[in-house]
Write a protein that binds this DNA or RNA. Structure first.
Lengths: 227, 227
DNA sequence: CGTTTCCTTGAGGATGGTCAACCCGTGTGG
DNA sequence: CCACACGGGTTGACCATCCTCAAGGAAACG
């Protein structure tokens, strides 16, 4: 029964993940046999810097935050993994130890493929390699974008961008998916400053505070103009 | 004669580039037939944001700076391409236009492989794909590192790190490879601040100024302690 | 030798970090 | 059911860092 469960989850994982989607049904079945899955509760650590990298990790359900600790001890939130995202450095890199930390933000299911199995897969399926290259390219572009923004834009501008991206279409009523502490870490600032900027935005009539960490965006155009 | 010249350059390019090094001699010869090369004078633009991406670009000789223009119009130096480096986003991405700018810092020779040719190569050589994935992974780690540093460290700390990395073993007498304007852009600050910090370092006895943009590092350990 | 580009230095001011106090919602145990 | 503790959020006062603007000097280049 447990085995059946695993196969079910493995298939779900593979269906979910963009990098496997262009594979044939036969190939997908093959991949499914290699997959192990694992569950983490909110707040649990998936891995820690210094851990040996033994598997490629794919998020099936939930949300994972990836952080790095700077030389001075400060934590920096690098990016979030949502369902379908994978941890790229993982299976491919020569460096065999993790450089960063992975923590589950909510209850999370992940699929794991062992490094060696994955390398064999890659050798046999050039299309898979292409898919991964594309995914990598996109993450690279996103991290690059983040760097540019951090070094050139003010906190106010960065927060405005973050709000628009995070809210998406739900401008009428949306809840911040992260604590202020994490947003601050992501944007390279402090919770206090985030708090103040939210107040400023509200004073300027750009947003309306519905509750703690719940907002309505009144003037998206003006917010976008900040950047 | 020109054809012979080109073949020569093509071979040189392929010898130089890590991603091709694990290929068989036969495969390398194949790759060589696909390569076109091009020369740029110092200061010349290799490509501009908005250009269609038609080729993978490999630097054979010289140095290229890759920059991005932020929304507010400020230029941010992302990274440098040295001999053997390639422009990764280039041939692989779905997005068919450049997001950033490439400018030759010195006289530069590059090799070009057309997108379609490269994709075919990838399909046939899984090892090549693995090499590229590794290279991508390293660039990703480097950009990530840069982001963390920028958001968590002070300018002083960032400059100290930059100095140590750039000087390498030549602590006794080394010349900055970039203008202060570019260093500033790379570290997310202004030329004025760079100038002042250099003076501070000199006052503190950490470095000694030999000439404009030429320095001796007196106390690398102390510099490293900054971070 | 003049022009341009880069570098340096200073004065002043904005931005945002730090520290500390207080508030509020949630949960826990008496 | 209430007191209390706890984690996060908010606010204020103060201060360090670093940017901007401006002017002058040095080096590079024709």
């Amino acid at each position: 029964m447990e085995a059946e469960m695993m196969v079910h989850d493995a298939k779900a994982c593979i269906q979910l993940v963009p990098i496997f989607q262009s594979l044939s049904t036969k190939e997908k079945a093959e991949v499914a046999t290699l997959v192990r899955h694992h569950h983490f509760a909110a707040g649990e650590s998936l891995f820690t810097a210094g851990d040996a990298v033994t598997s490629l990790l794919i998020v099936a359900h939930g949300q994972v935050k990836i952080t790095q600790i700077a030389a001075n001890g400060k934590e920096q939130l690098l990016y979030l993994l949502n369902p379908g995202d994978f941890d790229g450095e993982a299976a491919l890199f020569k460096a065999s130890t993790r450089q960063n930390f992975g923590t589950a933000l909510s209850a999370t299911d992940v699929c794991l493929i062992r490094r060696e199995d994955f390398q064999k897969l890659l050798q046999r399926s050039p299309q898979l390699a292409l898919n991964i290259l594309n995914a990598f390219g996109q993450r690279l572009a996103s991290v690059t974008e983040q760097t540019t923004r951090t070094t050139t834009a003010s906190i106010e501008e960065r927060l405005a961008m973050y709000l628009l991206e995070t809210a998406g279409k739900n401008t009428a009523d949306f809840t911040l998916p992260l604590k202020k502490k994490d947003i601050a870490s992501y944007l390279g600032t402090t919770p206090e400053t985030i708090s103040r900027k939210f107040r400023d935005f509200a004073d300027a009539g750009l947003i309306k505070k519905l509750a703690v960490n719940r907002f309505q965006i009144l003037d998206p155009d003006q917010l976008a103009l900040m950047e």
